[in-house]
Amino acid sequence: MSILVGRDTLLVVQGITGREGEFHTRASIAYGTKVVAGTRPGKGGQTAIDGTVPIFDTVAEAAKQAGANTSVIYIPASGAPDAILESVDAGIRTIVCITEGVPALDMISVVEAVRRAGARLIGPNCPGVTSPGQAKVGIIPASIHKPGRVGVVSRSGTLTYEAVQAMTDAGLGQSTCVGIGGDPIIGTTFLDVLKLFRDDPDTDAIVMIGEIGGSAEEEAAAFAAEHLRGVPMAAFIAGRTAPPGRRMGHAGAIISGGSGTAAEKIAALEAAGVRVADSPTQLPRLLLEAGYRA
Protein backbone atom coordinates (compact mmCIF):
# COMPACT_ATOMS: atom_id res chain seq x y z
CA MET A 1 0.00 0.00 0.00
CA SER A 2 2.05 2.97 1.29
CA ILE A 3 0.54 6.46 1.43
CA LEU A 4 0.14 9.35 -1.03
CA VAL A 5 2.15 7.81 -3.87
CA GLY A 6 2.59 4.20 -4.95
CA ARG A 7 2.11 1.76 -7.79
CA ASP A 8 -1.19 3.41 -8.76
CA THR A 9 0.42 6.82 -9.15
CA LEU A 10 0.12 8.21 -12.69
CA LEU A 11 2.21 11.34 -12.62
CA VAL A 12 2.03 14.57 -14.61
CA VAL A 13 5.07 16.83 -14.27
CA GLN A 14 4.25 20.56 -14.40
CA GLY A 15 7.35 22.24 -15.77
CA ILE A 16 8.83 19.08 -17.32
CA THR A 17 10.96 21.04 -19.81
CA GLY A 18 12.75 23.12 -17.15
CA ARG A 19 16.20 22.26 -15.80
CA GLU A 20 15.02 20.80 -12.48
CA GLY A 21 11.84 19.37 -13.96
CA GLU A 22 13.65 17.36 -16.58
CA PHE A 23 16.47 16.18 -14.31
CA HIS A 24 14.18 14.91 -11.56
CA THR A 25 11.66 13.43 -13.97
CA ARG A 26 14.45 11.23 -15.33
CA ALA A 27 15.29 10.12 -11.79
CA SER A 28 11.63 9.39 -11.03
CA ILE A 29 11.25 7.30 -14.20
CA ALA A 30 14.50 5.45 -13.46
CA TYR A 31 13.04 4.60 -10.05
CA GLY A 32 9.99 3.05 -11.67
CA THR A 33 7.48 5.87 -11.22
CA LYS A 34 4.79 5.94 -13.89
CA VAL A 35 5.25 9.38 -15.44
CA VAL A 36 2.39 9.63 -17.93
CA ALA A 37 2.59 13.28 -18.93
CA GLY A 38 4.30 16.63 -18.68
CA THR A 39 2.92 20.12 -19.21
CA ARG A 40 4.43 23.08 -20.98
CA PRO A 41 1.82 25.56 -22.23
CA GLY A 42 2.28 26.09 -25.96
CA LYS A 43 4.25 22.92 -26.53
CA GLY A 44 1.37 20.47 -26.38
CA GLY A 45 1.81 17.60 -28.82
CA GLN A 46 5.60 17.48 -28.40
CA THR A 47 7.43 15.00 -26.19
CA ALA A 48 9.98 15.21 -23.37
CA ILE A 49 12.57 12.88 -21.83
CA ASP A 50 13.89 11.47 -25.14
CA GLY A 51 10.44 11.08 -26.67
CA THR A 52 9.09 8.95 -23.82
CA VAL A 53 6.72 11.42 -22.12
CA PRO A 54 3.95 13.29 -24.00
CA ILE A 55 3.71 17.03 -23.37
CA PHE A 56 0.29 18.66 -22.95
CA ASP A 57 -0.66 22.33 -22.90
CA THR A 58 -2.79 21.91 -19.80
CA VAL A 59 -3.07 19.66 -16.77
CA ALA A 60 -6.71 19.03 -17.68
CA GLU A 61 -5.61 17.43 -20.95
CA ALA A 62 -2.93 15.40 -19.17
CA ALA A 63 -5.58 14.11 -16.76
CA LYS A 64 -8.11 13.38 -19.47
CA GLN A 65 -5.88 11.95 -22.16
CA ALA A 66 -3.06 10.35 -20.15
CA GLY A 67 -5.05 9.52 -17.02
CA ALA A 68 -2.79 11.51 -14.66
CA ASN A 69 -3.98 11.37 -11.02
CA THR A 70 -0.97 12.99 -9.31
CA SER A 71 1.03 16.10 -10.18
CA VAL A 72 4.44 17.40 -9.24
CA ILE A 73 5.34 21.07 -9.70
CA TYR A 74 8.78 22.35 -10.72
CA ILE A 75 7.59 25.85 -11.65
CA PRO A 76 9.24 29.06 -10.35
CA ALA A 77 7.62 30.71 -7.31
CA SER A 78 5.80 33.36 -9.32
CA GLY A 79 3.85 30.67 -11.20
CA ALA A 80 3.58 27.95 -8.56
CA PRO A 81 0.24 29.03 -6.99
CA ASP A 82 -1.33 29.06 -10.44
CA ALA A 83 0.16 25.64 -11.21
CA ILE A 84 -1.35 24.20 -8.02
CA LEU A 85 -4.77 25.68 -8.79
CA GLU A 86 -4.61 24.36 -12.35
CA SER A 87 -4.06 20.86 -10.98
CA VAL A 88 -6.95 21.29 -8.55
CA ASP A 89 -9.20 22.42 -11.39
CA ALA A 90 -8.17 19.41 -13.48
CA GLY A 91 -9.34 17.09 -10.72
CA ILE A 92 -5.85 15.94 -9.65
CA ARG A 93 -6.13 14.46 -6.16
CA THR A 94 -2.51 14.54 -5.01
CA ILE A 95 -0.38 17.60 -5.80
CA VAL A 96 3.27 17.84 -4.79
CA CYS A 97 4.82 21.33 -4.99
CA ILE A 98 8.62 21.37 -4.82
CA THR A 99 8.96 25.11 -5.51
CA GLU A 100 10.42 27.30 -2.77
CA GLY A 101 9.83 30.99 -2.13
CA VAL A 102 6.05 31.13 -2.65
CA PRO A 103 4.61 34.11 -0.73
CA ALA A 104 2.71 32.97 2.38
CA LEU A 105 -0.37 35.07 1.59
CA ASP A 106 -0.73 33.31 -1.77
CA MET A 107 -0.59 29.97 -0.01
CA ILE A 108 -3.44 30.93 2.35
CA SER A 109 -5.79 31.25 -0.64
CA VAL A 110 -4.35 28.25 -2.46
CA VAL A 111 -4.58 25.91 0.52
CA GLU A 112 -8.20 26.93 1.00
CA ALA A 113 -9.01 26.16 -2.64
CA VAL A 114 -7.27 22.77 -2.35
CA ARG A 115 -9.22 21.99 0.82
CA ARG A 116 -12.56 22.93 -0.75
CA ALA A 117 -11.86 20.72 -3.76
CA GLY A 118 -11.04 17.80 -1.48
CA ALA A 119 -7.59 17.45 -3.04
CA ARG A 120 -4.31 17.05 -1.19
CA LEU A 121 -1.31 19.35 -1.52
CA ILE A 122 2.17 18.40 -0.27
CA GLY A 123 4.47 21.42 0.17
CA PRO A 124 5.38 23.91 -1.13
CA ASN A 125 9.12 24.12 -0.53
CA CYS A 126 9.35 20.38 0.04
CA PRO A 127 11.51 17.54 -1.31
CA GLY A 128 8.51 15.40 -2.26
CA VAL A 129 7.29 11.92 -1.45
CA THR A 130 8.85 8.48 -2.04
CA SER A 131 7.26 5.10 -1.45
CA PRO A 132 10.40 2.94 -1.75
CA GLY A 133 10.20 0.28 -4.42
CA GLN A 134 7.02 1.84 -5.84
CA ALA A 135 7.20 5.50 -6.78
CA LYS A 136 9.34 8.55 -6.25
CA VAL A 137 7.74 11.98 -6.74
CA GLY A 138 10.12 14.88 -6.12
CA ILE A 139 13.80 15.28 -5.47
CA ILE A 140 14.65 12.86 -2.66
CA PRO A 141 17.70 10.85 -3.84
CA ALA A 142 16.68 7.33 -4.82
CA SER A 143 19.82 5.73 -3.41
CA ILE A 144 19.01 6.37 0.25
CA HIS A 145 15.80 4.32 0.29
CA LYS A 146 15.03 0.74 1.14
CA PRO A 147 11.50 -0.70 0.99
CA GLY A 148 10.09 -1.53 4.39
CA ARG A 149 7.48 -0.62 7.00
CA VAL A 150 8.62 2.60 8.68
CA GLY A 151 6.80 5.79 7.75
CA VAL A 152 8.98 8.92 7.70
CA VAL A 153 7.62 12.46 7.80
CA SER A 154 9.77 15.59 7.85
CA ARG A 155 9.68 19.39 7.56
CA SER A 156 13.16 19.48 6.10
CA GLY A 157 14.96 18.37 2.92
CA THR A 158 18.54 17.23 3.35
CA LEU A 159 17.91 16.42 6.99
CA THR A 160 15.31 13.92 5.80
CA TYR A 161 17.95 12.30 3.60
CA GLU A 162 20.22 12.05 6.62
CA ALA A 163 17.54 10.32 8.69
CA VAL A 164 16.43 7.99 5.90
CA GLN A 165 20.03 7.05 5.12
CA ALA A 166 20.57 6.19 8.80
CA MET A 167 17.49 3.96 8.71
CA THR A 168 18.53 2.21 5.54
CA ASP A 169 22.07 1.71 6.87
CA ALA A 170 20.55 0.04 9.95
CA GLY A 171 18.43 -2.24 7.76
CA LEU A 172 15.16 -0.46 8.53
CA GLY A 173 13.20 0.03 5.29
CA GLN A 174 10.53 2.67 4.74
CA SER A 175 6.88 2.42 3.64
CA THR A 176 6.67 6.09 2.57
CA CYS A 177 8.91 9.12 3.16
CA VAL A 178 7.07 12.45 3.09
CA GLY A 179 8.75 15.86 3.09
CA ILE A 180 5.97 18.29 4.07
CA GLY A 181 8.04 21.46 3.57
CA GLY A 182 9.48 24.19 5.75
CA ASP A 183 7.16 27.12 4.97
CA PRO A 184 4.68 28.67 7.43
CA ILE A 185 1.68 27.76 5.24
CA ILE A 186 1.77 24.24 3.84
CA GLY A 187 -0.86 21.96 2.37
CA THR A 188 -0.27 18.88 4.48
CA THR A 189 0.86 18.96 8.11
CA PHE A 190 2.52 16.44 10.41
CA LEU A 191 -0.90 15.71 11.84
CA ASP A 192 -2.36 14.89 8.41
CA VAL A 193 0.50 12.52 7.60
CA LEU A 194 0.34 10.81 11.00
CA LYS A 195 -3.34 10.06 10.36
CA LEU A 196 -2.47 8.57 6.99
CA PHE A 197 0.27 6.42 8.51
CA ARG A 198 -2.07 5.26 11.29
CA ASP A 199 -4.55 4.04 8.69
CA ASP A 200 -1.92 2.47 6.43
CA PRO A 201 -1.72 -1.32 6.88
CA ASP A 202 1.84 -1.27 5.53
CA THR A 203 3.23 1.17 8.08
CA ASP A 204 4.23 -0.29 11.46
CA ALA A 205 6.43 2.44 12.92
CA ILE A 206 6.91 6.20 12.44
CA VAL A 207 9.85 8.58 12.36
CA MET A 208 9.14 12.30 12.57
CA ILE A 209 11.70 15.02 11.80
CA GLY A 210 10.69 18.43 13.08
CA GLU A 211 12.37 21.74 13.64
CA ILE A 212 11.94 24.96 15.60
CA GLY A 213 9.07 27.34 14.84
CA GLY A 214 5.29 27.06 14.99
CA SER A 215 3.45 24.42 16.97
CA ALA A 216 2.92 21.63 14.40
CA GLU A 217 5.14 19.21 16.34
CA GLU A 218 3.15 19.83 19.52
CA GLU A 219 -0.10 19.15 17.65
CA ALA A 220 1.42 15.95 16.27
CA ALA A 221 2.50 14.95 19.77
CA ALA A 222 -1.03 15.44 21.09
CA PHE A 223 -2.34 13.19 18.31
CA ALA A 224 0.34 10.58 18.97
CA ALA A 225 -0.53 10.53 22.67
CA GLU A 226 -4.13 9.76 21.87
CA HIS A 227 -4.04 7.65 18.73
CA LEU A 228 -0.57 6.17 18.26
CA ARG A 229 0.22 4.76 21.70
CA GLY A 230 0.88 1.28 20.37
CA VAL A 231 2.96 2.44 17.41
CA PRO A 232 6.76 2.59 17.84
CA MET A 233 7.76 6.21 17.20
CA ALA A 234 11.00 8.16 17.19
CA ALA A 235 11.60 11.83 16.45
CA PHE A 236 14.33 14.36 15.93
CA ILE A 237 13.95 18.14 16.33
CA ALA A 238 16.48 20.43 14.63
CA GLY A 239 17.41 23.78 16.12
CA ARG A 240 18.12 23.12 19.80
CA THR A 241 20.87 25.71 19.68
CA ALA A 242 19.19 28.20 17.33
CA PRO A 243 19.12 31.80 18.56
CA PRO A 244 15.62 33.29 19.13
CA GLY A 245 14.27 35.84 16.67
CA ARG A 246 16.39 34.71 13.73
CA ARG A 247 14.89 32.93 10.77
CA MET A 248 16.95 29.76 10.33
CA GLY A 249 16.80 29.39 6.55
CA HIS A 250 13.25 28.08 6.29
CA ALA A 251 10.62 30.78 6.46
CA GLY A 252 8.89 28.68 9.10
CA ALA A 253 11.93 28.05 11.31
CA ILE A 254 11.97 30.85 13.83
CA ILE A 255 11.67 31.05 17.59
CA SER A 256 9.44 34.04 18.26
CA GLY A 257 8.16 35.40 21.52
CA GLY A 258 9.74 32.45 23.35
CA SER A 259 7.55 29.89 21.60
CA GLY A 260 8.42 27.34 18.94
CA THR A 261 11.57 26.23 20.79
CA ALA A 262 13.09 22.79 20.38
CA ALA A 263 12.84 22.22 24.13
CA GLU A 264 9.04 22.66 24.11
CA LYS A 265 8.64 20.33 21.15
CA ILE A 266 10.91 17.66 22.63
CA ALA A 267 9.04 17.82 25.93
CA ALA A 268 5.67 17.48 24.18
CA LEU A 269 6.86 14.49 22.14
CA GLU A 270 8.44 12.72 25.10
CA ALA A 271 5.29 13.23 27.15
CA ALA A 272 3.39 11.52 24.32
CA GLY A 273 5.65 8.48 24.53
CA VAL A 274 7.73 9.39 21.48
CA ARG A 275 11.48 8.81 21.81
CA VAL A 276 13.50 11.86 20.76
CA ALA A 277 17.01 11.48 19.33
CA ASP A 278 20.01 13.76 19.99
CA SER A 279 21.25 13.03 16.46
CA PRO A 280 19.44 11.66 13.39
CA THR A 281 21.87 8.70 13.47
CA GLN A 282 20.23 7.51 16.70
CA LEU A 283 16.77 7.15 15.15
CA PRO A 284 17.06 3.46 14.16
CA ARG A 285 18.21 2.51 17.67
CA LEU A 286 15.35 4.43 19.27
CA LEU A 287 12.81 2.70 17.03
CA LEU A 288 14.17 -0.67 18.10
CA GLU A 289 14.03 0.41 21.76
CA ALA A 290 10.39 1.35 21.17
CA GLY A 291 9.75 -2.25 20.22
CA TYR A 292 9.89 -2.09 16.44
CA ARG A 293 11.17 -5.19 14.64
CA ALA A 294 11.78 -4.98 10.90
Partner: peptide, 29 residues
Amino acid sequence: VNGAGLAMTTMDLVKHFGGEPANFLDVGG
Protein backbone atom coordinates in the same frame (compact mmCIF):
# COMPACT_ATOMS: atom_id res chain seq x y z
CA VAL B 1 25.96 22.86 5.20
CA ASN B 2 23.35 22.37 2.46
CA GLY B 3 19.77 22.64 3.67
CA ALA B 4 18.40 24.64 6.59
CA GLY B 5 17.29 21.69 8.72
CA LEU B 6 20.61 19.90 8.28
CA ALA B 7 22.47 23.16 8.98
CA MET B 8 20.62 23.54 12.29
CA THR B 9 21.26 19.89 13.09
CA THR B 10 24.96 20.31 12.39
CA MET B 11 25.08 23.24 14.82
CA ASP B 12 23.18 21.21 17.40
CA LEU B 13 25.66 18.33 17.11
CA VAL B 14 28.67 20.63 17.39
CA LYS B 15 27.17 21.84 20.65
CA HIS B 16 26.27 18.29 21.70
CA PHE B 17 29.92 17.26 21.39
CA GLY B 18 31.10 20.21 23.47
CA GLY B 19 31.83 22.83 20.80
CA GLU B 20 30.25 26.15 19.87
CA PRO B 21 29.11 26.90 16.31
CA ALA B 22 30.38 30.19 14.83
CA ASN B 23 27.51 30.42 12.38
CA PHE B 24 24.47 28.96 10.71
CA LEU B 25 25.22 28.63 7.01
CA ASP B 26 22.99 27.00 4.41
CA VAL B 27 24.56 27.12 0.95
CA GLY B 28 21.18 26.19 -0.51
CA GLY B 29 20.30 23.55 -3.06
